[in-house]
Design a binder for these strands. Structure first.
Lengths: 236, 236
DNA sequence: CCAAAAGTGTTAAGCATACACCCATGC
DNA sequence: GCATGGGTGTATGCTTAACACTTTTGG
C-alpha cells in the first residue's frame, strides 16, 4: 500500500519503453533486447525500465538509451502511454513509450550486442513481448506523420548524406518507391539542403554528391504556423 | 512504500487530465473547473482525477468526462503524459492528458456549472493550475494537426451544420480568415459532405443550407495510406 | 426597399506527375 | 568499352489563390 497524499490505494508501476529506429542505408531497423526478468524472461522486447522517483520521464528515456548505446543527444519523442489493465500478467504496469531515431553509423554494434540487444529489419521482427508490437506499429505511423511535417529523416542519416540515400530512407519509411527526378526536385526546392562538393563513392563508380542540411532547418520545429490557407487545413 | 513486484520503491501518483474543447458557433471554448483539494484549492484547472486500480486509462478519461457532463461517446484522444519531477508541490504526480471535443449544443450548461465548472473562451483563459496552460497549448497544436488529417471539425459541430458555421469553426481553430469561395470549393470537392434541403435561418434572413457528413467519413481514420507520392511526404 | 448574410465563377500562377536519356567512373 | 548507379528537363493537367457581384428574405 502506497503512502500517497492524493491516493493511498494506487497499485501501479510506471515504466518507460523505447522504440528505437535505425537506418543502415538500405532499410529501417529496430533495436530490441531480451527481457531480463520474469515473466517471459528472454522474450524480445522494447528497451525499457521501471522509472525511479528522481528522474523526469524524458530524462529516464534518454538514460535508457544512453545505458544501452552510449549515445547522447539522440532524437527522442514521447509517443503514447499504454495502460490497459491486463497488459502485464504480473501486476498493473503503465508504459510510457518513447520513440527514437538513431544514426546507425554512430552506434557501435558490438557494444549493443554485448547487452543482449540486436537490430532487426522492420519487416522481419520476431514475436514481441506483450503489446510491444502495437507500440511499434503506432510508432511507425507516428514516424510517417512526423516525417511529413518536419525534416525528420535527417536524424536517421549521417551528417553528410547523398540524395539517393535520402530517397532510400524515405522509401523505407513509407514503404514506397518515388520517382527520383520528382523526389530531387521537391527536396531541393524546399531549400533545406546544402550541397558540398564532396562525393561518396562507396556505392557507385561515378559517386554521388554529399549534402548536409542547413542549420536553421533543425531549429524550426514549426509547431504552429502564423498563417494558414485552405490547402493547409484540409489534407485528407 | 508500495508493494510491487517490479519495483518496491516507486512513489508516484498517476492522474488523468482532460482538455475539453467546445465550439459555440462563434469561437473555441475550454471547459475548466475549480480544483477541489489543496494545495491550490479553488484554482482553475483541467478536469481530472487520480486513476484507480481497476480502470484503463481511456476508460478513466471517459468516466471523468461522463461524471462532469453526462455525455458518452465523446471524441477523446490521448495527448501526452507529463511527468516532470516538480510538477506538483505535494508529491510526484504523473498526468496523462486527454483532449476531447464536444458539441456544445449537446451539453447542458447548467449541469456543468452546478459542478463548479465553466466554459472559457480560448483567448480569455484564467490563470491555470501548475502546468495546465502548457497542456492546453499542446492540445491546440494537436487539434490543428489532427484537423488537417481528418474531418475532425465535425466532432465540434451539431449533426447538421451550415458551411458558414464550418468555416467559422476552422477559422477559430487556426485563428485565420479564409476566403469563403475557396473554402467552400475545397471542402465540397472532398466529397465528405451531404447537403440537405433544410435551411438554418437563425443567422440570416436568407438562411443557409444545412449539411451533414457522409457516414463513411467518420470511419475512415486513415492512419496509414497504402501509397504515397512525393507531395505527401514533404509538407514542411 | 434596404440591410445582412449566403452563395457563386473565372483567370492566372504554381505545383505535381509522368516519362527517358546522358554522364562519369572503375574495372 | 561496358556496366553501374548518378544525375537531369519538359509537357500536361491539376490545384490554388485572388478577386466582386448577385441572391434571398425579413423587417
Amino acid at each position: 500500500m502506497k503512502n500517497s497524499k492524493y491516493s493511498n490505494s494506487q497499485e501501479i508501476t510506471v515504466a518507460i519503453d523505447c522504440v528505437i529506429f535505425g537506418f543502415d542505408s538500405e532499410k529501417l531497423n529496430l533495436l530490441l533486447w531480451r527481457r531480463k526478468v520474469n515473466p517471459h524472461k528472454g522474450a524480445w522486447s522494447l528497451v525499457g525500465e521501471v522509472i525511479g522517483n528522481d528522474l523526469s520521464l524524458d530524462k529516464t528515456a534518454s538514460d535508457v538509451l544512453f545505458k544501452l548505446t552510449g549515445l547522447e543527444n539522440i532524437y527522442l519523442k514521447q509517443l503514447k502511454t499504454y495502460g490497459e489493465l491486463d497488459r502485464d500478467p504480473l501486476e498493473r504496469v503503465i508504459s510510457i513509450v518513447y520513440f527514437s531515431l538513431i544514426r546507425v553509423d554512430e552506434l557501435s554494434l558490438k557494444k549493443v550486442e554485448n547487452k543482449d540487444a540486436k537490430w532487426f529489419a522492420l519487416n522481419e521482427l520476431p514475436k514481441l513481448f506483450l503489446d510491444h508490437k502495437e507500440m511499434v506499429n503506432d510508432s511507425l505511423s507516428e514516424l510517417r506523420k512526423i516525417a511529413k511535417d518536419q525534416p525528420l529523416g535527417f536524424e536517421l542519416l549521417p551528417k553528410l548524406f547523398t540524395l539517393p540515400q535520402l530517397q532510400t530512407l524515405y522509401e523505407s519509411i513509407y514503404n514506397t518507391k518515388f520517382d527520383s527526378r520528382n523526389f530531387r526536385k521537391k527536396i531541393l526546392s524546399l531549400n533545406v539542403l546544402e550541397k558540398t562538393n564532396l562525393k561518396d563513392k562507396s556505392t557507385s563508380r561515378k559517386g554521388a554528391f554529399l549534402f548536409g542540411f542547413k542549420e536553421n532547418t533543425l531549429i524550426n520545429n514549426q509547431k504552429n504556423k502564423d498563417s494558414y490557407n485552405t490547402k493547409d487545413v484540409f489534407q485528407f
